[in-house]
Every structure is written in structure tokens, then in C-alpha cells.
């Protein structure tokens, strides 16, 4: 999945970095503030929701645009993204094209 996104984003001209879980993502943000974060929900050590909660606490990171990727469906627990202020989410499997469009819309607006 990471490979897929990396390829598509780099082809579109974006600078891309990836980490394996929420905790590492936080560490990354503190070193180098990203312009946009794309995150899975279920990850080991710190999941997507927890990551988002941590980011909100810090005013530096609160406003970084955030996109959730999830394979969860309606039968799962209620999607908590909206409560956490994340309006953009894509449900796997998705067309990479859709991700690119979402990103460009966010960064333009």
C-alpha cells in the first residue's frame, strides 16, 4: 500500500515520507513538519485515532491537513474521524486517482 501511494504521489511531484505506525509518525512530525498527513486507522502501537488525538493537542500540528485511509465499513465501530476533525477519508480499496484529487483539493484550498 505504501509503495502504491509513494509511487503515485512522487509521480505527481510530491515529496513523500512514510513511517510504520502512529508513534513513529509523531516523532517524524516533531522533526520535520509535514504539509499533509495520510494515515491508516489500524496500526500497531498507536492507531490512527490516537495519532490524531495527539496531534490536536499540539497547536503546531493541529491544522495540518489529515486524510484517513480505512478498510472499515459500516458494520464496524462508528468512524470517529469526524469527531476528531478529519473530514477527508478514503475507503480501501480506492482509486489512487481519487487520493491525488483529494490531496490537490486540500492543498489548493
Amino acid at each position: 500500500m505504501v509503495t502504491l501511494i509513494r509511487y503515485n504521489l512522487e509521480q505527481a511531484g510530491y515529496h513523500f515520507a512514510s513511517v510504520k505506525n502512529g508513534r513513529l509518525a509523531l516523532e517524524f512530525c516533531r522533526k520535520e513538519k509535514p504539509d499533509l498527513i495520510i494515515s491508516d486507522i489500524s496500526m500497531p502501537e498507536m492507531d490512527g485515532y490516537e495519532l490524531r488525538e495527539e496531534l490536536i493537542k499540539d497547536e503546531n500540528f493541529r491544522d495540518i491537513p489529515f486524510i484517513f485511509l480505512t478498510a472499515k465499513t459500516q458494520t464496524d465501530d462508528k468512524f470517529r474521524g469526524i469527531e476528531l476533525g478529519v473530514n477527508h477519508f478514503l475507503i480501501k480499496p480506492f482509486e489512487p486517482e481519487l487520493l491525488l484529487m483529494t490531496i490537490s483539493n486540500i492543498l489548493k484550498g
Binding site: 500500500m1 502504491l4 478498510a71 480499496p93 480506492f94 489512487p96
Partner: peptide, 18 residues
């Protein structure tokens, strides 16, 4: 099951689309 099946499917779809 639904979750598990979607993950590899997402890759197949994504990569072939790309």
C-alpha cells in the same frame, strides 16, 4: 473477513490502476 479481503484487493486495484 470483509476487512481482511479488502486489504490485498486494495493493493491489486491500486497498482493495476496506476
Amino acid at each position: 473477513v470483509s476487512h481482511e479481503l479488502r486489504t490485498p484487493l486494495a493493493s491489486i486495484l491500486g497498482f493495476s490502476s496506476t
